[in-house]
Design a protein around this nucleic acid. Sequence first.
DNA 1: GTCTATAGAAGGATAGAC
DNA 2: GTCTATCCTTCTATAGAC
Lengths: 203, 203
Amino acid sequence: MTENEKLTEDKIFEAATEVFLEKGMDGARMQDIANQAGINKALLHYYYRTKEKLFSAVFEMIAKQILKKFAPVLDENLSLEEKIRFFFKEHISFLQKNPRLPGFLLNEVNRHPERIKKLLASIDFDGLWLKIYEQHKQEFDRYNITQATLPQLMISMAAISVFPFAAKGILEGILGKVNVDFNDFMEERKEFAAEFVIKAITR
Amino acid sequence: MTENEKLTEDKIFEAATEVFLEKGMDGARMQDIANQAGINKALLHYYYRTKEKLFSAVFEMIAKQILKKFAPVLDENLSLEEKIRFFFKEHISFLQKNPRLPGFLLNEVNRHPERIKKLLASIDFDGLWLKIYEQHKQEFDRYNITQATLPQLMISMAAISVFPFAAKGILEGILGKVNVDFNDFMEERKEFAAEFVIKAITR
DNA sequence: GTCTATAGAAGGATAGAC
DNA sequence: GTCTATCCTTCTATAGAC
């Protein structure tokens, strides 16, 4: 029974994740989620009182999952160049398995910035900043990185990795017209991006 | 009367643009648009029979506007480096004035890729490709650019410029925590991005 | 815990008067 | 061309039986 309950709740959560990723909060219908889970609408409300609460649960899980993906780079004991290569390889691989995450997150956050506020609040950015500085102090001198350009650099790396997935709908159309496959493009991109960035910051 | 008619139709179109940009197709309400335009719902249907048709008109205008912004770079008679500087300066300036365009377009296209298909179909990408090659043949040799990396490079440039706006909801939160203003960040980015890319492709 | 049935509200669309 | 009133469908949410 508790086993069964857990099963149903998980089934709902997974179905909701699927549908919300596909259609977003506004486009998703409780009926779609019920169908996807193989149950009826009433059960959705039994476990998660409202659509809003169900969405919040899904959103929080996804947001945490993505934000976490930016963190492990900090813990690896690698040189700056190795870290950059590691980041693009790991991050793009993750997005290849979850291509709709970027579009979903960006859209929902732009629509309701408050949703992500409390998640961001729990992250110690000043601490992260310091940690990065500690780890790569000497390298930052050797490379072309200052306190002012570090945020620019990091956002650029995120952009190079994430944007193609966020723009997948357009990009596939454009690449198709010059006979390039999206997946091949992203596979190549892991190395291209790393070399591109390393080149850009090397004095 | 024709003058007045034009006025009302424009008023509706502008109100619809505003609301669709803010809430997207699924989140927008005809009532919102009517309120924004200072008229009633019935008039919306008089000019644009359905919500779908009204949205299509707005979407097409926005998509054309954005795609056009990528083109003029091709026509300028500048060196590759000058062109890169020109691109980031112009493109980011445009997005500073229209910060919600990227998020809107990316979201709607991912949700309904067919919407952009016929617009892309009207663009001669092979011709553009050739044109770029013609213009910068010798430079491509001097720089680190091959037929395989040119798409990677161009998508990266688009990413570096567009992504911060598409991710504005998150980025403002993050930058705020380290006391950086989004607008200042984007102002700096015009030059940072250009130098970053030029550095990356220079042998 | 799960279902069927339905309430109740909201939203897109239309009829008809002016 | 513009408005008010209203239809009809869709959607979230709940009541109540099992």
